[in-house]
Write a protein that binds this DNA or RNA. Structure first.
Lengths: 336, 336
DNA sequence: GTGCTCTATGTGAGCGCTAACACTACCCGG
DNA sequence: CCGGGTAGTGTTAGCGCTCACATAGAGCAC
């Protein structure tokens, strides 16, 4: 066990060349004769040689690994994003090391970043959806390529985000277009940028339509909190349209409305956000806003690798537009 | 950018000792004078020194990283497991590198394992819930600590699994205990061990109660497939109890029954599997079986580290019992 | 044939660390 | 007062690789 495999010199010996030539073949350098290249490849295959990433990382100062710092990777959004990041990174030849973290405060983020740095990762992606994370990021070492996802739009850090405002605006407009006088909103926690953006988009759409936004109902992303808000909404006969900040909130609201005997979409229309795979099988199937996690991941990795290669800490940002997925939870409001 | 931080010799110089003494302090060796230890720690703090994991990995032959190979990390089960693994590994001072993989065939798994090995991970956890993965695992290099999760119970590889059979048996018995004559089952894909185990537990419970199992309905974990099965079930008046292989299947069945006007639990009782966070907010709240992902993760890491330390490839296995979470989707069958 | 460029390959150093061993005090028993 | 432990520390080698440079040979112009 743990028998060390062959090293570059073993390959070199077998191929009858120097270790440097093997290195050149491995790294795709030019100026290696085709015949030599083939001999080296054959030797590599014969010995089952595997380059030692640690040695390479030691001498180059960085490994082919991207560190990701994330909080709650069990939630649908973060989990999808993480998977997409991993996929994209793999396509670029990078592995992904996850450092999940209980809280997104300075200490936790900093510790996770430290762990990544001590492994000499090539760059770090921080999924930083809350206020406290933003502060933490400004105090981090500046000398490492870093990209934030879903972070604070106001901070001068390379950032990739879903356009929450546009998504929420689309959702709200969709409900207004169906004929509703106004749209209620069940939001996520107020320290999440996602929440803030979705609230903003909802408000904007209402104001643009000349409607005064009704009071905000705040949840915490969970179906449980959606249920509690839903119980309140069910008691208010004037409510005919609800936009929830995610699909799980919608599920909770849906159940509360169901229990109260208020039918969706006949009496109340609903739109969610996230397009979780089950949303099409809610009762009724939920109209929702779908963020493109693959696009987010691709933009993030691209921004990160640009920094790695250029050696400059750019402060670019990129915004990914979400799309509305129309199902059966929206209808015209009932006649009074 | 990428300015190399201080190295061990810098710390040594500042503390007025040799680099080796610094190494000893870092690795908690005995035989370092308390006063020296403090001087070294002070120097480390002053310089902001961070040990270089790559250099350590190079000389020791392994890094403080655990590789995880997984397929569909967007599904609730795998995502939870991954998060739990990461958490547990972090507590033991290990980082987790994810290598997700499109298919669980030999080529894909082998490639992911290779990638991990070239980074000299300390060990590998493979989440291998399907048949094809099992075959792949037997052809892998034997000289690296490896643990499978949710893998093939018949293969001689260290394995940690949720006790699918017991969980399914509990679910089925719960329905029988409520007075149902028989229990129908909507399963997952037949090449998943999870599915197979859940089918087996369901069958066992029925046979033990002297009931002939009704025909199996096979889904693919998705709410969509649950919906299709649900439409069939709704048309059969003799169906009064359904056990689905996961909660999302249950969601689909629930909607099909709802559309057909068959009430749950009044006419039909249901039990799911997984206890996704939203299950409590289905209509009605779903009784389900909860696997303990934390326990699985802990057992896996423990088994893995035992191999790392002992240097032997043990073939232990560990089974984690799930628990039934009772909600409102089960009732006595209707009087005929 | 001399001097040049260009390609293909080899040589040596060193990345930052740990392991093995060497060394220096100092204490102890006889 | 000397042999022999035992704490505390230093010295050296080398893990497997890449980088910078050295070298060798081929091709070509004059």
């Amino acid at each position: 066990m743990a028998v060390h495999g062959p090293a570059m010199t073993d390959v070199a010996r077998l191929a009858g060349v120097s270790h440097q030539t093997v290195s050149r073949v491995l790294n795709g350098h030019p100026n290696v004769r085709e015949q030599t290249r083939l001999r080296v490849r054959a030797a590599i295959a014969e010995l089952g040689y595997r380059p030692n990433g640690a040695a390479r990382a030691l001498v180059t100062g960085r490994s082919q690994v991207i560190g990701v710092v994330a909080q709650n990777t069990t939630l649908y959004g973060p989990a999808s994003l993480l998977a997409a990041l991993e996929q994209t990174a793999a396509e670029e030849g990078f592995a992904v090391s996850v450092g999940s973290v209980r809280d997104l405060d300075y200490r936790s983020i900093s510790a996770a970043v430290e762990r990544h740095l001590s492994h000499r990762v090539a760059g770090i992606v921080v999924i930083a959806p809350v206020e406290s994370a933003g502060e933490a990021l400004e105090r981090l070492p500046k000398d490492v390529p870093l990209v934030t996802v879903d972070g604070d739009p106001r901070r001068p850090v390379p950032l990739v985000t879903v356009d929450q405002v546009a998504g929420a605006r689309a959702a709200t407009e969709h409900l207004l277009d169906a004929g509703h006088r106004t749209v209620w909103h069940v939001s996520g926690p107020s320290d999440w940028f996602d929440s803030v953006g979705r609230i903003e988009g909802w408000r904007e759409a209402l104001l643009a339509a000349g409607v005064d936004p009704p009071p905000l109902m705040q949840g915490d992303w969970s179906a449980a909190s959606g249920y509690r808000c839903g119980q309140l909404l069910a008691r208010m006969p004037e409510v005919t349209a609800v936009f929830t900040a995610n699909d799980h909130l919608a599920l909770g609201v849906l159940r509360a409305l169901h229990e109260a005997g208020r039918r969706v979409p006949d009496e109340i229309s609903m739109v969610g956000f996230d397009d979780v795979p089950e949303a099409a099988y809610f009762i009724p199937p939920l109209t929702t806003v779908r963020p493109d996690f693959d696009a987010v991941a691709q933009a993030s990795i691209q921004l990160l690798l640009a920094q790695v290669e250029s050696g400059t800490a750019g402060a670019l940002r990129q915004t990914i537009a979400p799309s509305l997925v129309s199902r059966d939870s929206v209808a015209a409001p009932p006649r009074p």
